[in-house]
Amino acid sequence: MIFFRVVAALVLVAVLASCGGPPSKFRTYKGPEVTHVVVYKTARRMDLWHYNRLLRSFDVQLGGNPFGHKQHEGDRRTPEGDYIIDRRNPNSRFHLSIGIDYPNEADKARAEENGWKPGGDIFIHGRGPRFQQARGDWTDGCIAVTDREMEDIYAMVRDGTPIRILP
């Protein structure tokens, strides 16, 4: 009899433990494939596309110096041009993030020609705990959305997806 009570208590503890806790930041997506991403810097908007069908749009915040193409490390500009989503960081200090393959070969050549370091670590990311109240363009060159929106983007956009960042 004691054995059955111990087993019942352990089952009850396991059931209760699985019910509690914060919701997961990892979401699932079963819709159409995101075939490309387009960022419109002037409009502060990012669109996720399945070929010629718009799937989702997001308001974005950019680098603290949002005008013009990223030239070098520390200029706080968001790059412009064609890139690829090439990595993801589930443990980002900005909640979640997906990486953009900046600098590409042209960016590296331009920086070298001018004696600059091109910079790097450009991501689409959430806000994380530190930047929940951030207003305006506040990143060091990244593309920022809310944490909840980043959960959807992280689920929808795969590594290898092209991204075009327009002025």
Rank of each mutant, 00 (worst) to 15 (best):
M1E: 11
F4W: 13
V7Q: 01
V7W: 00
V7E: 02
A8P: 09
A9K: 02
L10M: 11
L12S: 12
A14D: 01
A17H: 05
S18P: 06
G21F: 10
S24M: 09
K25T: 10
K25I: 11
K25M: 10
F26H: 10
F26E: 00
T28F: 02
K30T: 09
G31R: 06
G31K: 06
P32W: 03
E33A: 03
T35G: 00
H36P: 03
V37P: 01
V38I: 08
V38C: 01
V39E: 00
A43Y: 04
R44D: 05
R45E: 07
Y51H: 05
R56C: 08
S57M: 10
F58T: 03
F58W: 08
Q61N: 13
L62C: 14
G63Y: 14
G64M: 15
F67M: 12
F67R: 13
F67Y: 11
H69Q: 14
H69E: 08
H69A: 13
K70W: 12
K70L: 04
Q71M: 12
E73P: 03
E73A: 05
G74F: 14
D75Q: 13
R76G: 03
T78M: 08
P79Y: 12
P79Q: 09
E80G: 04
Y83E: 06
D86M: 01
R88A: 06
N89E: 05
P90T: 02
P90E: 03
S92Q: 03
R93Q: 14
F94M: 07
F94P: 06
L96F: 10
S97A: 07
I98W: 05
I100R: 02
D101W: 06
D101K: 09
Y102C: 02
E105M: 07
D107H: 04
K108F: 03
K108P: 00
A111H: 14
A111I: 14
E112P: 04
E113N: 14
G115P: 13
W116M: 09
P118R: 03
G119L: 12
G120Q: 09
F123T: 13
H125V: 15
G126E: 12
R127K: 12
G128W: 15
F131P: 04
Q133A: 14
A134S: 15
A134W: 13
G136P: 09
D140N: 11
D140Y: 13
C142N: 05
I143K: 01
I143S: 00
A144G: 11
V145I: 15
V145E: 04
T146A: 08
D147G: 01
D147P: 11
E149N: 10
E149S: 05
E149Y: 08
M150K: 08
E151H: 07
D152F: 11
I153D: 00
I153R: 03
I153A: 00
I153S: 01
Y154C: 02
Y154T: 05
A155T: 14
R158G: 00
G160D: 04
T161W: 14
T161M: 06
T161D: 06
P162V: 04
I163D: 00
L166A: 07
L166Q: 08
P167K: 07
P167F: 11
P167G: 02
